[in-house]
Design a protein around this nucleic acid. Structure first.
Lengths: 143, 143
DNA sequence: CTGATTGCAAACATTTTGCACTATG
DNA sequence: CATAGTGCAAAATGTTTGCAATCAG
């Protein structure tokens, strides 16, 4: 898979090793691109289903992937701290319903406009800008 | 203070009692409107300086104030989960620097535009919409 | 008075750390 | 081979809960 190869080269460039634990974590995240996964879900899967990956390694590597902007942390109202694959997606932007907790990726054009405006007004760098919107979705509008 | 009175009437309307613990918490939050305060800071202050307010009560009441949209939770890169007074401010919107962690309130006009666009495109309710932007501030732009 | 709220202490959950060992590059 | 990364177990931190006692309305 192409993306997988890209990720590998990012690691290489930083002198980071591709260990089984990391490989499994990255695979799991790629397999769940469309979902928002909690730390617990991750280390339970990698510890039980894949077997052998330790909690500490998960914590350490999640932190790493976050720093490399491969995943993004989101705070979902009903699920707490979660992670989401964002590497080489154009849109790192989510809107999250405060009631049902559903998180969806945003519309690309809209966010390009917002990015531009943010940069113009606040001098906020476009590079790696990410946005999170909390509100009420169509369904939950009436409390 | 007028705002204080407004808060009291919100509590009354919901059959919620104005206990010393709540009074102290609300006061502390009002005194720190411009800051982002962590749970630890809150219960250490209320437990030691104000004396007597218990950790549990802080947790329970922070949760309450969040539900009443009096405060908003923010996830600061270097400080973790924090809270910020937002009651009757027109702008519930922050941009947060991933490097230095500084969080600032956003520009009102910009966000009104964004709110409108979000509503038009995603059917996202304007009521209680809040936004968080993560990026790099002017100062930290060059990593 | 009555029920909402508190404090307390314990249970539970989450995250971090030090260290000896392993295995990637 | 050198050193980045791992597992493990324990410590540190953070959060929730049940319950008897209290006090706001």
């Amino acid at each position: 898979m192409k993306k997988h190869r890209d990720l590998v080269s990012i690691l290489k460039a930083k002198n980071l090793r591709l260990t089984p634990a990391r490989r499994a974590l990255i695979q799991y995240i790629l397999d769940n691109k469309s979902k928002h996964i909690s730390l617990k879900e991750i280390y339970e899967f990698l510890g039980i289903k894949v077997e052998g990956v330790n909690r500490s390694s998960v914590y350490r590597n999640i932190e790493l992937l976050k720093k490399l902007d491969i995943i993004q942390e989101l705070n979902l109202p009903n699920k707490g701290k979660c992670f989401q694959y964002v590497f080489d997606k154009d849109v790192h932007h989510f809107y999250i319903c405060k009631t049902c907790g559903k998180a969806s990726r945003g519309n690309k054009e809209l966010f390009e406009k917002i990015e531009k405006a943010l940069k113009d007004i606040h001098g906020f760098s476009k590079a790696n800008l990410s946005m999170v919107f909390y509100g009420f979705c169509e369904k939950c509008k009436g409390h």
